[in-house]
């Protein structure tokens, strides 16, 4: 779309206004607004059922928009689905690798779906297998691969058409820490190469690691928007003091922590004190004669932002 870019201000890669998705009487996405700029890593953060996947499927042009406006790469998914999809890479939440084909064949046939020549599809397949460190498994079946390997293969597959926009729906859910870090490293490198990333996650650390900007979704709506740092600054304090009391003891804490922190959040298993100076709060707690089993001072995270905004933790 060079003509459209010439106005000086580049169009957002994804543009949504009042975007709504309903399934019968159930509203999965309720009139949300957002823009994703070229080159940024944009995240949808929220618990299961918040509407993240429905939003991703609409952006991926595999789910019709119920109401509102959606433009992807400046085009309308309702009329230009195939043309948009030709320029997208999609990593779905559930692995959809072709179990009847080998690792390399999965990439080659995917390239063919995008109209690449056989030679070009094979060339890119090998380059991508190298990128995701699966070249030595190229001729293996998909089934015996580990979860992390399957995820990496799915990402390689999503890159076969050299997409401008990569959609990742919970890319690391179910992976062990090592596999997650390897994936994050790959995604970070893609971002540096200029690929625009849009991802959903219910992991705070993932959002903090990868996202330049994110929106927090809850019950089909966007409840906050900003960079991870901005969100933390806006909604929570710099530090959090986590207190654990012996079983049963927390029942009669009522009021005894009052005034020690900007905000006190009582969870079933622990108490959170939001304060800019965690160490001072620890001292104050002890001065009041309270004897917690453990006291941990940590930096605030997006988890705290989410808790503040919705009153619930992210992963149940």
């Amino acid at each position: 779309m060079p003509g459209r870019m010439s106005r000086g201000e580049p169009l957002p890669l994804v543009h949504a206004r009042g975007l709504t998705k309903r399934f019968g009487a159930f509203t999965a996405v309720d009139a949300i607004d957002f823009d994703v700029a070229r080159g940024e890593a944009f995240g949808f953060l929220g618990p299961n059922g918040a509407g993240k996947t429905s939003t991703m499927r609409m952006i991926g042009c595999v789910s019709p928009v119920t109401a509102g406006t959606l433009r992807v790469l400046g085009l309308d998914p309702a009329t230009d689905g195939p043309r948009i999809r030709a320029r997208l890479g999609v990593v779905p939440q559930q692995d959809s690798l072709d179990m009847e084909l080998t690792v390399r064949e999965n990439l080659v046939i995917y390239g063919r779906y995008f109209d690449l020549s056989r030679a070009e599809a094979r060339r890119r397949a090998d380059a991508l297998l190298d990128f995701v460190q699966l070249l030595d498994r190229a001729d293996s079946q998909v089934e015996p691969l580990s979860g992390g390997m399957k995820r990496r293969l799915t990402i390689a597959r999503a890159l076969i058409n050299e997409p401008e926009l990569l959609l990742l729906d919970e890319p690391t859910t179910g992976l062990d820490p090592q596999a997650r870090h390897l994936l994050w490293d790959k995604l970070y490198r893609l971002k540096q190469e200029g690929v625009t990333l849009v991802l959903t996650t219910h992991y705070m650390d993932e959002a903090e690691q990868l996202c330049d900007r994110l929106v927090v979704m809850d019950k089909a709506k966007i409840v906050a928007e900003g960079s991870p740092r901005q969100l933390i600054e806006r909604y929570v304090t710099r530090e959090v003091l986590e207190l654990r009391f012996p079983a049963g003891a927390s029942v009669d804490l009522d009021g005894r922590l009052e005034g020690l922190a900007e905000r006190v959040e009582q969870l079933p298993d622990r108490v959170l004190l939001y304060t800019d100076d965690g160490e001072a709060a620890v001292v104050a707690v002890h001065e009041r004669g309270l004897r917690p089993e453990s006291a941990l001072v940590r930096r605030s995270t997006l988890e705290d932002v989410f808790l503040r905004l919705t009153g619930r933790t992210l992963v149940d």
Binding site: P82, R85, A86, L88, V90, D98, Y113, F114
Partner: peptide
């Protein structure tokens, strides 16, 4: 599902 993420319909 995988096929429909490509230009195929």
């Amino acid at each position: 599902d995988a096929v429909l993420s490509t230009p195929l319909g």
